[in-house]
Write a protein that binds this DNA or RNA. Sequence first.
DNA 1: AGGCGCTTGTGAAGACGTGCACAAATCGCG
DNA 2: CGCGATTTGTGCACGTCTTCACAAGCGCCT
Lengths: 256, 256
Amino acid sequence: MSQHRHPGAPGRAGAVPALPDLPEATVARLPEYLRALHNLADAGHETVSSEGLSAAAGVNSAKLRKDLSHLGSYGTRGVGYDVALLIEQIEYVLGLTQRRAVALVGVGNLGHALAGYDGFASRGFRIAALLDADPSRVGEEINGLVVRHVDDLPTVAAEESLAIGVIATPAAAAQQVADQLVAVGVTSILNFAPCVLSVPEGVDVRKVDLAIELQILSFHEHRKASLTALPATGGTALTALPGGFAATDTQEAIGT
Amino acid sequence: MSQHRHPGAPGRAGAVPALPDLPEATVARLPEYLRALHNLADAGHETVSSEGLSAAAGVNSAKLRKDLSHLGSYGTRGVGYDVALLIEQIEYVLGLTQRRAVALVGVGNLGHALAGYDGFASRGFRIAALLDADPSRVGEEINGLVVRHVDDLPTVAAEESLAIGVIATPAAAAQQVADQLVAVGVTSILNFAPCVLSVPEGVDVRKVDLAIELQILSFHEHRKASLTALPATGGTALTALPGGFAATDTQEAIGT
DNA sequence: AGGCGCTTGTGAAGACGTGCACAAATCGCG
DNA sequence: CGCGATTTGTGCACGTCTTCACAAGCGCCT
């Protein structure tokens, strides 16, 4: 029942092993599993049970098993999953066997932070270029990279094979930047600008809006406050009682 | 049909008008609608149809109508929605009628950027305190706020009524910071650290992981590449043809 | 006043995601 | 060599979300 993709599954890149088409929700969780697995590997674990891994990733164990089964993964009944093998599998599926080049457009406040964020480098990506439309920022060096003008994009794309672009510009500039990225062949965009982007079919856009996250939390605050017709002392006590934990629902919701 | 909450719906804060319990998916989209509505208002529109608003927010129009109907909103058939009224309604439901105080812990790379991000201020939030565990950072002034030591949290909480905390520390410190936040009464946390937080029931956690977003895009890149058994010229042409747009599926997925 | 066109609000169907509970498989031990 | 403990993989039922399609309502024009 799990034989639906022996041919060339984990081996190496290069071939065209026909990725299984995973449910979007599963895809969004794989990076989480991957991070947890790296932690486990660093801690010296060679195998891990679905129970253990799911706890580390903050999800239900059945969900985890189903997710892994989708990518045809080989766990061993009675034992668990081989940590190293699973890391290899997930990295393969996520396309992380090659270090992907990312172009970052917009080196304002947020762009600066992203340029210096080591989480990109440590998790399979390489910032290949920093770009900005503001001439006064061009030439500045950040983290060993020189900021170039956004109109140099075609040149940059010719040097590197760019597939992913990150937009950290003000909203007003985002659509134009997106168009420029698409024009040089970028097919995946991570958008930090608070606006909707129009892109041709075949281009993936993911959006991260920091204010929206806060507003969602605000709703839940409002809701909690309206339920509790209580004194609302707010300030003191309430030590973190270790009894009733729970990876709250919202915990995972970011991806989807 | 839509009378299920006349009593004191839009009016003013203060009372306990019993928030309707909205589907999580709807809550995640309301901020998006709100942003689009503000744009429309700035552009001078007084009313907008579900079709128009849904286009501006990048969602299906039926979905938008259903979302708005959940909060008992009053549109006018044949006309559309009153922009100003709808803004008021959504801001009320999201609990944005009061400017909420946010504590930001961790003023490293990312924390700096967040401290300077004007999107918080412009969308209903106020950064009430900057905190860090590193003594060498304490005292530094960022954007008019002085960084205080994280152990001052109880003092800060006594001064302000903090309900929301933002964690922008390294992963290793995040859990401890979360515990400290919870201990002073914070009940909503936005976590930028790449790790799972354990919190008591009743505390909401949302997580934003920048590297995960890239990894999800990477999967789709990998997938596209494996489907296209084609030359993969990569570099040139491919002008943004304005024919086949489409707010791609992934566009919204962030919230969920 | 009446009819017509437009837009909302929603019923119903289907797609998708989740979690329980259990059979099948594997290992280790006696 | 067989048995029991353990853990995976998954069938199934349930809940949530999405989308279509259309009746009900509203304003405008004649």
